[in-house]
Simulated assay, not measured.
Amino acid sequence: MADPSNFQAGPLDRDAAFYVAGHKGLVGSAIWRTLSSAGFTGLLGRTSAELDLKNREAVFAFFAENAPRYVVLAAAKVGGILANNTYPVDFLSDNLRIQVNVLDAAREHGTERLLFLGSSCIYPKFAEQPIREDSLLTGHLEPTNDAYAIAKIAGIMHVQAIRRQYGLPWISAMPTNLYGPGDNFSATGSHVLPALIRRYDEASASGSRTVTNWGSGSPRREFLHVDDMAEACLHLLENYDGPEQVNVGTGKDVTIKELAGIVAKAVGYAGEIDWDSSKPDGTPRKLLDVSKLTASGWTAKIDLVSGVQSTVDWYRNNVERIRN
Score class of each variant (00 low, 15 high):
Thr138Val: 08
Tyr166Phe: 15
Tyr166Pro: 12
Ala147Phe: 01
Ala161Thr: 13
Ile150Pro: 00
Ala154Met: 09
Gly167Asn: 06
Arg163Cys: 04
Gly167Cys: 10
Leu141Ser: 11
Lys152His: 11
Lys152Ala: 09
Ile150Arg: 15
Ile162His: 13
Met157Ala: 11
Gly155Ala: 00
Tyr166Lys: 13
Arg164Glu: 01
Ile171Pro: 02
Leu168Tyr: 07
Thr138Ala: 09
Glu142His: 05
Gly139Thr: 10
Ile171Ser: 04
Gln160Ser: 09
Ile150Gly: 00
Ala154Val: 03
Pro169Gln: 10
Asn145Thr: 05
Asn145Ile: 04
Asp146Glu: 10
Gly167Ser: 06
His158Lys: 13
Trp170Met: 07
Ile153Val: 15
Ala147His: 03
Met157Pro: 00
Gln165Thr: 10
Arg164Asp: 02
Ile153Leu: 10
Leu168Cys: 07
Leu141Pro: 05
Thr144Val: 13
Tyr166Trp: 14
Ala154Ser: 14
Gly167Tyr: 06
Ala149Phe: 06
Ile171Tyr: 01
Ile153Glu: 02
Ala151Trp: 04
Ile171Lys: 01
Ile171Asp: 02
Thr138Arg: 13
Arg163Phe: 05
Val159Lys: 02
Ala154Arg: 04
Gln160Glu: 14
Val159Gly: 02
Gly139Val: 12
Ala151Gln: 14
Pro169Val: 10
Gly155Tyr: 01
Gly167Leu: 06
Arg163Ala: 08
His140Phe: 00
His140Gly: 01
Thr144Arg: 12
Pro169Tyr: 11
Gln160Phe: 07
Ile162Asn: 15
Asp146His: 04
Pro169Asp: 11
Glu142Gly: 03
Thr144His: 13
Ile171Asn: 03
Asn145Met: 12
Gly139Phe: 09
Met157Lys: 09
Ile162Glu: 15
Ala151Met: 11
Gln165Ile: 06
Gln165Ala: 11
Asp146Val: 02
Glu142Val: 10
Leu168Ile: 07
Gly139Gln: 04
Ala154Leu: 01
Ala149Trp: 05
Thr144Ser: 12
Ala149Pro: 08
Pro169Ser: 12
Val159His: 01
Tyr148Gly: 14
Arg164Phe: 01
